[in-house]
């Protein structure tokens, strides 16, 4: 295990921020050690030190495999009473229209066999077009937008489809290392047909120049899995004089079976 500066047993406040070059070198070292085997790593490494906050928050024991019990083979149910009619349009939640590039993000929630996850809850949250969250702890000096909260919800249709109208979020700085910037992203919270399919992830925009510099994006070591969290521009989703369009399908984990 190589020594990585800034993650010894010192509290974060006393840690000198690593340079982007140092983070890139750590990312490259871990990526170089990853070989795509018969069981590719489909999720991020929990223990991924280029993302500094993971150092004290990742379990050190391997996840313990167990057969799911009945409750874990089922998922919570959401219905029309849980979601309001305007919850999926993030541009109409205030008196005026938010500033930014109007977009629609749409796609389907599927299982690994390609079957749609129907009638299930999807939640999204994001920064505004300037890269600022409405969250009180976001101290980025970019402006808040009085016409944008950045939270939405919907239920998937019978074909597993969801759709959100919003503005494209801006990239924003964070304190993982010196001059750290997150690529623009929308946070997604997804429920499947089973408790074990619960997923929270982030959707990125194609061709973002910040991908190579971002340890959260790079924590997914498998290239094909990493491609799964990048949306595609879809001109069919764009609408005349209304908005541009992105398509992003979400695939939840395998449907659990009982082995015993």
């Amino acid at each position: 295990m190589p020594t990585i500066p800034g993650v010894a047993n010192t509290p974060p406040s006393s840690v000198k921020l690593a340079s982007q070059e140092a983070i890139n070198a750590e990312i490259a070292l871990i990526a170089g050690g990853y070989e795509r085997g018969s069981q590719p790593e489909s999720h991020p490494r929990l223990d991924y030190l280029p993302y500094r906050s993971s150092a004290k928050r990742c379990p050190t024991n391997d996840l313990y495999r167990t057969d799911p019990e009945l409750i874990e083979r089922t998922a919570p149910v959401f219905g029309q009473q849980d979601v309001g009619p305007f919850d999926s349009d993030l541009t109409v939640q205030h008196l005026g229209a938010p500033i930014g590039e109007r977009i629609v993000v749409t796609g389907r929630v599927l299982d690994t066999d390609g079957r749609p996850i129907a009638g299930q809850l999807v939640e999204v949250w994001q920064a505004n077009a300037a890269g600022r969250y409405i969250h009180v702890r976001d101290q980025h000096q970019a402006p808040l937008d009085p016409n944008f909260t950045g939270f939405g919800r919907c239920l998937t249709g019978a074909d597993g489809s969801y759709s959100f109208t919003t503005v494209k979020p801006g990239p924003y700085p964070w304190r993982n290392h010196h001059n750290a910037w997150r690529p623009a992203h929308i946070h997604f919270s997804i429920f499947g047909r089973a408790f074990s399919q619960r997923l929270i992830t982030q959707m990125y925009f194609p061709g973002d120049p910040l991908f190579d510099y971002d340890p959260i994006f790079q924590s997914v070591l498998d290239r094909r899995s990493r491609e799964r969290i990048v949306a595609t521009y879809d001109h069919e989703v764009s609408s005349h004089e209304e908005h541009t369009g992105y398509r992003w399908d979400i695939v939840v984990g395998e449907t659990p079976m009982v082995n015993r």
Binding site: H43, L199, I200, R228, G253
Partner: peptide, 8 residues
């Protein structure tokens, strides 16, 4: 199909 990876 390839699963969508999680993110923090």
């Amino acid at each position: 199909m390839i699963e969508t990876p999680g993110q923090t």
